Every structure is written in C-alpha cells, then in structure tokens.
Computed example of a mutant assay.
Amino acid sequence: MTTTIVTIGGRMAAEGLAMLENAGVACISTEPYPGKAEVMALVEKHQPAALVVRLVELVDRDMMVASRNLRIVAKHGVGTNDIDVAAAKALGIPVIMATGANAHSVAEHTLGLILALTKDFRRQDGHIRNGLWDKKLYAGRELRGQKLGLVGFGLIGQILARMVAPIGMQVAAYDPFAPEEAFAGGVIRAMSLDVLLANSDVVSLHCPLTEGTRGLIGVREIALMKPTAFVVNTARGEVVDEPALTAALQAGRIAGAGLDSFAEEPPVESPLWQLPNVLLTPHVAGVTEDARRAVSIMTATNVIAFLRGEPLAQNLHARV
C-alpha cells in the first residue's frame, strides 16, 4: 500500500516533492490557511503517515487522531506554535522541525528591514511619489557605531551578527539558553533583557514563541527603549504586545518598527497599517525560493528517513 503524507497549508517546493514521490510517497496538500473542517476531511480520507505543517492556524489533537496511520508531524520550517506539541507527545507522535534551513534568508530579511528603517526609505519613497523633493526631510542615519540588540541568539541571530559586523554595528544579545561559545566575534552577552533594551539603537527579535516569551515586549519593556530606537520582529508576532507597540509608535515613544510577523495571521486590519514609521511584510522572511527549497529538501529527507526507521539526516530537535 502506498504511503501518504498530507501537507497542511500549501505545497512543498518541487525538489522536496520529487524526493518524496521518488521514495514512493504520495503527497496531498491543502491551500494555505485551510479551515479545520477541510483538514479533517483530507486526513480522514487519506489516512496519512505524516503531516507536514506549513501555513495553518493550528494542527490540533483532532487532526492527529483522524489518521490511524499517523507516525510523525513535521514542521516545514521552525517554530511549533502552530502545532499542539503537548497533544502529539501524549499520543506518542514525534514533532520535528527543519531547523536552520531558512536561517540565512531570515537574517538577510532582518538586515533589509533594519537598513530600510534607518535609511528612512519608506518616507523618502513616499515623498518622491507625491512630487516632493526636499532633502531637509531626510531622517536617515548610519548603522556604523549603532548598537544592535538581539533578543534570542540562535542560528539566525548569529548569522545576523556576522552580517552587521563589517558595517561597524556593535552587537549585544540576550539569550539565557545560548552557550558561551556562541558569543564570538565581539558579540556582548547582555545579562538582562532590560539592559539590552535600554542600550540598543535597534532591537531585533529572534526568540521562539513559548509561554515565557509570549508578550515579552510590552508596555514596560518598550518604555525602557530609547526614543530613537527601532524594533524589528522576524520571529513570532505574539512575542510583541501589538497594542502596546502601536501606542508607542503613534506617540513617537520609539522611532519605528519593521514587522514580518503578527499575532493573528493573516492579520485583520490594524492601526499599524496607517503608520508612516512602520514597515510591514507578510511573514515572508524565511520563504525565499532558496529557503523554501532548502526547507522542503530537509523536511522530505527526514520524513523519508523516519518512515524507513533510519536516523534523521539533520539534527532537527525531534520531540516525542
């Protein structure tokens, strides 16, 4: 009998699909952000051995138990806040992630947001489009000598730190779980989040979403920041208290924000949309074609290995 997997939230890249199909695995997929009823119907019909999770609100216990053949849940990317990991653990179903496959793309996207904010690109583009040519309105500044504060110092944060070093930025990171050897190349280990926030010109978020990081950047934390500081979030939207951030941006309490993720996705209309000191992208930092290909290949490689009873080809932090 053919082994089947269901990808929830859109198709994998062609390279990953080809690997699965060559291994005799039939691949069924939903469109992005499917409703629960659609997922349940597909899982009940095809009884997959694996669920690959892309763009969906939540893969819950009901979806997992709907297939009596389910052996593994694989996140097509990193971060498992859209998977009920506790339910999977109770059912004895491992959850794996494609850790690191899209890290470089996310780091590049973060740097792009930082540059666009500090160089005042959005406002200057708007001035030109509105027929205004006035260099006195330019509010750009150099990154050289500016302090970049990283909240979370895993692979993405470490890549970003290496990227900004030649520019001349001073980098500090707060991450109580990062090993000492991660702090190389002049990166300073911040001993508290408060100190990092107070001293940084740009605060960039790279921590996972957990109960400990939900709402991590709120009213009190934003009040610690410099009025000239920028916040960049390419992690998870729920790490930031969005109403608190909106109020601070509206009041000019901080200089601006670059946001790639939101508390609700797809997001409802928000006051953030109207603010001239905010840059917005639709959670695409890690989905360049290069990253999507790498994530799909890593995910396919490890789903195949797991279903064959072989060791995973990458260290993906498998959870049971």
Results as ranks from 00 to 15, higher is better:
residue 17 L to D: 15
residue 247 A to S: 13
residue 218 G to D: 05
residue 272 L to H: 03
residue 219 V to R: 14
residue 40 M to T: 14
residue 104 H to K: 12
residue 37 A to N: 13
residue 314 Q to R: 11
residue 208 P to M: 08
residue 202 V to M: 00
residue 109 H to N: 14
residue 168 G to Q: 09
residue 201 D to H: 06
residue 282 P to D: 09
residue 200 S to R: 06
residue 270 S to P: 01
residue 50 A to W: 03
residue 260 D to N: 13
residue 85 V to I: 08
residue 259 L to N: 07
residue 233 N to E: 09
residue 308 R to A: 15
residue 261 S to I: 11
residue 241 D to K: 02
residue 214 R to Y: 07
residue 238 E to F: 03
residue 179 P to Y: 01
residue 209 L to Y: 09
residue 200 S to P: 07
residue 293 R to L: 03
residue 205 L to H: 03
residue 301 T to E: 15
residue 174 Y to P: 01
residue 69 N to I: 00
residue 174 Y to Q: 00
residue 111 L to V: 07
residue 86 A to F: 04
residue 238 E to C: 10
residue 92 G to K: 04
residue 196 L to I: 00
residue 33 Y to H: 13
residue 125 D to A: 15
residue 165 A to T: 14
residue 278 V to W: 00
residue 16 G to P: 04
residue 300 A to C: 10
residue 24 G to R: 10
residue 148 L to R: 05
residue 258 G to T: 00
residue 142 E to F: 10
residue 283 H to V: 12
residue 130 N to V: 04
residue 275 L to R: 05
residue 141 R to Q: 14
residue 208 P to H: 08
residue 21 E to N: 13
residue 250 Q to L: 09
residue 245 L to I: 04
residue 51 L to K: 02
residue 173 A to C: 10
residue 127 H to Y: 15
residue 63 M to D: 06
residue 62 D to C: 06
residue 184 A to C: 09
residue 152 G to R: 03
residue 227 P to C: 07
residue 160 L to Q: 01
residue 30 T to L: 08
residue 89 K to D: 13
residue 169 M to F: 03
residue 119 K to Q: 15
residue 106 V to I: 15
residue 252 G to D: 10
residue 113 L to R: 04
